[in-house]
Design a protein around this nucleic acid. Structure first.
Length: 424
DNA sequence: TCTCCGATTAGAC
DNA sequence: CTAACGGTCTAATCGGAGA
């Protein structure tokens, strides 16, 4: 009888990804403390090592650290997702060439399956070298028998310069494994956030090793299946599979905070039309239809001095569809029903749910109007893919600008827009 | 009592 | 001068409503 060989999963994670993308086109900023901000220039979402050293925290509101611009030379960029996703695709294409089985886990992370390979660690170094040389993005690789341990190994690779960016958990002896896990706070384990690590600490579970060796039935009873799975994964029993094909989304959301407070209905309708258009584009991209549309409005929750109002309304569609015009008709109606004068709206959004595969064989197949709108949407998507998002809009969009998000520090679209390339 | 549903919570990035 | 704080997505869980 043969025992199944242990897995060798590699988690490759780009270092300070958004900052590294910005630096590709600004090599002069290689040692400059810098951050990338979230939409609306609200929070810090990526930090260079220099910015981390200054004490800038992940997710920190920008206005709290803005003083560091003058006092310490910190630089900030608005997020440029067109740039980051383009660079991400290039990184992922290089990674793919190392392993046929792989899962793109996020914009800057990928799991590769190197099971059976003798020199996984050397492969890790090769990956680092090639992505660095070909794309210019620094990455770290963590290797382990489960996703959770690969993730943890990646963390070690990032943290300890001695590893030179690659760490293989599988090469450790049992004693070394315990010793390592005992030095890692439980909150750094994938799947254990701040809430859980607080609760775990009351059971004296403080480190990854404590979690691995905790009494399983108690853990299950007190913390549920999620934490139990994390424990099993730490015990080197795979519970999380490699998801090679990304499942279609069950829900598609498009929402934004506004650059300025919005009070007028026409402005809200303009924003809602844009959110609907984006959500429907995503819906069609995964060849789906939705049969419920939901719209929400929100006033600024940080302004306790102002009247708050956060309505949310949903409508089931008579027929599942992915037609922007149809869906926007409903979304606009929901918005009109909820809008009340006298409030300063700060955020709004459109949610599509009850998502099913798009099948043209449903309902009245030969309805000319329907096939017409389908072809219209196909054309619209093709033009927007070819010439950039927003090239073609529906008529409800674009009459007003006031609601649009703040992006005062955006870099040019170096890789996706000829017109934005700096001239020589 | 069982099941379904929506709201809430928690997590990742 | 003041005020300024992201966007998506999933899974689990829980309580109430309805069968």
């Amino acid at each position: 009888m043969t025992t199944k060989p242990f897995q060798q999963l590699v988690l490759v994670d780009c270092n300070n990804f958004y900052v590294s993308c910005e630096r590709l086109f600004r090599p002069d900023l290689l040692n400059t403390p810098m951050v990338v901000l979230s939409n609306n220039d609200g929070c810090v979402v990526s930090r260079s090592n220099e910015a981390k050293a200054m004490g800038v925290k992940m997710g920190q509101p920008w206005f709290e650290c803005q003083h560091l611009v003058d006092s310490q030379g910190l630089m900030a960029f608005s997020s440029n997702y067109a740039l980051y996703s383009d660079i991400s695709n290039r990184v992922m294409a290089v990674l793919e060439s190392f392993a046929p089985r792989h899962e793109v886990y996020s914009i800057d992370e990928s799991f590769l399956d190197l099971t059976g390979m003798r020199a996984a660690r050397d492969c890790g170094y090769a990956i680092r070298e090639r992505v660095g040389r070909w794309i210019g993005i620094p990455v770290c690789a963590g290797i382990g028998p489960t996703k959770t341990l690969a993730k943890l190994a990646n963390h070690v690779a990032k943290k300890h310069p001695r590893s030179r960016g690659v760490f293989d958990f599988n090469l450790l002896t049992a004693a070394q494994k315990s010793h390592l896990l005992a030095r890692i706070p439980v909150g750094e384990v994938w799947g254990i956030g701040s809430k859980l690590s607080n609760r775990l600490s009351r059971y004296n579970i403080l480190t990854a090793h404590d979690l691995k060796t905790a009494h399983a039935p108690t853990l299950r009873a007190e913390f549920g299946v999620v934490v139990e799975k994390v424990q099993r994964e730490l015990q080197e029993v795979p519970c999380l599979k490699l998801e090679e094909i990304t499942p279609t989304k069950q829900q598609i959301v498009c929402s934004r905070s506004f650059g300025q407070p919005v009070t007028e209905l026409p402005h809200l309708l303009d924003a809602i039309a844009t959110f609907t258009a984006n959500a429907c584009t995503k819906l069609r991209a995964q060849a789906s239809q939705a049969s419920v549309v939901q719209v929400f409005l929100q006033t600024n929750r940080f302004r306790s001095d102002l009247q708050q109002y956060t309505p949310c309304l949903a409508v089931p569609l008579p027929q599942a569809t992915a037609d922007t015009l149809q869906i926007n008709g409903w979304a606009a109606e929901l918005c009109r029903q909820m809008w009340k004068p006298g409030f300063e709206y700060k955020k709004a959004g459109v949610i599509l749910s009850e998502i099913t595969p798009a099948s043209r064989h449903q309902g009245d197949l030969l309805d000319a109007e329907k096939t017409g709108s389908l072809r219209l949407m196909e054309t619209l998507d093709r033009l927007n893919t070819r010439f950039g998002r927003g090239t073609v809009k529906i008529s409800a969009q674009g009459a007003y600008e006031q609601w649009q998000m703040r992006q005062q520090r955006k870099s040019p679209n170096y890789t996706t827009s000829w017109s934005e390339l700096p001239t020589a």
